[in-house]
Amino acid sequence: EGALGYVREFTRHSSDVLGNLNELRLRGILTDVTLLVGGQPLRAHKAVLIACSGFFYSIFRGRAGVGVDVLSLPGGPEARGFTTLLDFMYTSRLRLSPATAPAVLAAATYLQMEHVVQACHRFIQASYEP
């Protein structure tokens, strides 16, 4: 009554968009960067990486990032953490276990994903409590 206009907010929209982006990733549609993790190539969308990681933001935001379409990430223990973080970026679900948390923590530190770093610390702390 008397309202100037109506807004219908679709509360599932952001998760539905993310789900579709993940489907595009899995099918290699519009992926524009290859991440080499321990020699394993992972295809992804720069826009998703830059939105989720301070490290990728600093690389791809500038003109220098335009030509970068293959990027090597450190191998070693944190390599497994990078695939967990890539899945997190596209699903909002961060898989952690006592065995994998240190690798995820190291990878999140490298990718400057501070909120994930804090969540890993909370998880590791909790797993030490009796």
């Binding site: 939105a51 989720c52 990681s53 301070g54 898989r95 994903m113 909120h115 994930v116 969540a119």
Partner: peptide, 22 residues
């Protein structure tokens, strides 16, 4: 079947905020 996975909901911010254009 896969081991039991407990899901904990995190309500806080999950990723960095891209600064708004000054």
């Amino acid at each position: 079947h896969e081991g039991l996975v407990a899901t904990v909901k995190e309500a806080g911010r999950s990723i960095h905020e891209i600064p708004r254009e000054e």
